[in-house]
Simulated assay, not measured.
Amino acid sequence: MIEYNSSKGNNMSATYDAASQYRVTASPVLSLDQIKYAFEKRLAELLPSSGNPGDLLTEAMQYAVLGGGKRLRPMLFLSIVRDLGHNAPALFDLAGAIEIMHAASLILDDLPCMDDAKLRRAQATVHIKYGEDIAMLAAVALLSHAFHIVACAKDVSANARICFTSILAQAIGAQGLAKGQYQDLHHVPQRPVADVARTYALKTGALLGVAIEMATTVAQTSAETTQSLRQFAAAAGQAFQIRDDLLDVGVGPAAAEGEINSKDIGQDARKATLPSTLGIVAAHLRMVSEATQAYFHLDVALGPHNQTRSLLAALFPQCDARNIPAPVND
């Protein structure tokens, strides 16, 4: 059972039931690709299934969650807790709640009153496929279902469930993602760089921060490790949002070329972004700087041989100091 003792701070321990049907997914001998495959299987099991072909609400929920994606947030959580020595099956359910909440936020982000997007992950957005009414209901249902998963997580103590529920609620609410989206929609296009960065921290960094806060809570990390991981999340969130904004104007790292055609571009033309504020070249340099800092803080927290860095390398391979050739002395 995963336990949380509020009288001693983040005091948690993880054990797992040998009979668990998905215990193997947490095995430290598996690669991250294998962990992701197992997570995808568990994610599908966590979603409601009515068995009624006319139930478009349930169908839309499944469509939104299972339609692909990098699974960056849940995989960060699972990878970090594994690097920190924890591998309880209950962690897969917590990771599922993170991804389901992220999927709900994307439905809302794509709506006509928000970004009015037609394409997401190379397929029609939820409101285009099912209508705005069903899309809104699916987003609300997914948000509530994410909390339900945490509240009912097997082998997680009541105190731990309360702690994780609070982390999720703060990330999605008026001081997190919702506030970031509000600032993104209602502030003037020309804004100081620091203001844009603060919106990025709320809009994108909030759910990355969930992965970190839940991982550090599970692993009872030291104050120093917790701070390094928070700094990693902050830098990674900035880099990822700049990367996304560069893709929105049709440019970006070579690794992201396939993503340019997977969703609408030009959605941020009337918004304040770092590419529009700083220019393409300066924004790209800032992305590289933030990603480099993310690598640094991750290695400080988890050691230079951590496996979590491979998730970052898939997005920012050019920012990993290990890929930069050493200077040759004449």
Rank of each mutant, 00 (worst) to 15 (best):
L137E: 02
A138E: 07
V140R: 02
V140N: 06
L142G: 05
L142N: 04
L143K: 11
S144K: 02
S144M: 10
S144A: 13
H145N: 06
H145L: 05
H145I: 06
F147S: 11
F147I: 09
H148D: 10
C152G: 01
K154W: 00
D155W: 04
V156H: 00
S157N: 00
A158H: 01
N159V: 00
R161H: 01
R161G: 01
I162F: 02
C163E: 14
C163P: 00
C163N: 11
F164P: 04
T165E: 13
T165A: 14
S166F: 00
I167S: 01
I167G: 01
A169Q: 05
Q170H: 12
Q170M: 02
A171L: 08
G173Q: 09
Q175T: 15
L177A: 03
A178N: 10
A178Q: 14
A178P: 14
A178M: 15
K179P: 00
K179F: 08
G180Q: 09
G180S: 06
Q181D: 09
Q181A: 13
Y182D: 13
H186Y: 07
H186K: 06
V188C: 01
P189E: 06
P189S: 03
Q190T: 09
R191F: 02
R191S: 10
R191L: 15
V193W: 00
A194P: 08
A194V: 14
A194G: 02
A194W: 05
D195W: 06
D195E: 15
D195R: 09
A197S: 13
A197D: 12
A197L: 15
T199A: 01
T199H: 00
Y200W: 07
Y200N: 10
Y200K: 07
A201R: 13
L202W: 05
K203I: 05
K203Q: 04
A206C: 11
L207P: 11
L208C: 07
V210G: 08
A211D: 04
A211P: 08
I212G: 05
I212W: 08
M214N: 06
T216S: 12
T217H: 11
T217G: 12
V218H: 03
V218N: 01
Q220M: 08
Q220G: 15
Q220C: 14
Q220N: 14
A223Q: 15
A223R: 12
E224R: 04
T225R: 08
T225N: 04
T226K: 13
Q227Y: 10
Q227P: 01
S228D: 15
L229M: 03
L229F: 03
R230H: 14
Q231I: 00
F232K: 07
F232T: 08
A233G: 14
A233N: 10
A236N: 01
G237K: 02
G237P: 09
Q238I: 10
F240E: 07
F240R: 03
Q241C: 08
Q241E: 06
I242A: 03
R243L: 11
L247K: 11
L247T: 11
V249C: 08
V251R: 11
V251P: 13
P253T: 08
P253G: 13
A254C: 01
A255R: 05
A255Q: 12
A256R: 08
E257F: 09
E259N: 12
E259M: 11
S262P: 07
S262G: 13
I265V: 15
G266K: 11
